[in-house]
Amino acid sequence: MTLSVHEVRAGYVPDADILNSLSITVEPGEIVTILGPNGSGKSTLLKTVVGQLRPRAGRVVADGRDLAGIPVHRRIRDCGVAYVPQLDNIFGPLTIRENLELGGQFVAPAARRARLEQLLEHYPNLGRKAGARADSLSGGERQMLALARALMPGPRHLLLDEPSAGLSPLMMDELFAHIRRIRDREGVSVLMVEQNAAESLEVSDRAYVLVMGRVHREGTAREILEDETVGQLYLGTGPVH
């Protein structure tokens, strides 16, 4: 149930690696946050794990299975990986219920219905508006919907690309608390790329700080939070809290 990246090199153009022999591990049930300045390779890492970008070297392994050569859709369907992109992550013209159904299209119909009702109970705000169009939701509610939809097939690994982007501080806190509740309830491991360092570290177990496509610092969330150098140099926060 471990998700790991071993010595991965990847990039968008030939001879220009964004990820330089990068290795990370997410243990079962862990929340791991990837931090770093712009251009450090955070989103590239997620794209490599989900399969949108093919690594030039190295391996991505989920639950002991090497994901090399497995396309994105098969990683989602068969390898227990769920991915929530940063933007445009819901289908606006569809209702909330329909958005959730889309997340469970590869689940047997009876199980899908049961799961949908379960998630609508876990997300009472969404449950109350299940018949409303998704584009009528607020930014925070949209993120909740995207998260709930990703959970429909019961993934083992949840990949989140800047889930707090564009949210108000209040909504951000609520979202991160919610991510922790998801982990506790579903037992899913979470690999999250974030810009809001302090807030995301509050709910994380461990974190990696990337610089120029390499792991510059890794440790428990507490260690990273208390590392003043990391905060000042790379997170733009000064001392992190």
Partner: peptide
């Protein structure tokens, strides 16, 4: 049909359709 719905997802947001497990 389901195929038609996937086509529309592909039209609206191909990356998201893939992230939902569809082979676009």
């Amino acid at each position: 049909t389901q195929f038609g719905r996937v086509l529309r997802l592909m039209r609206e947001n191909p990356d998201l359709a893939t992230a939902l497990g569809h082979d676009i």
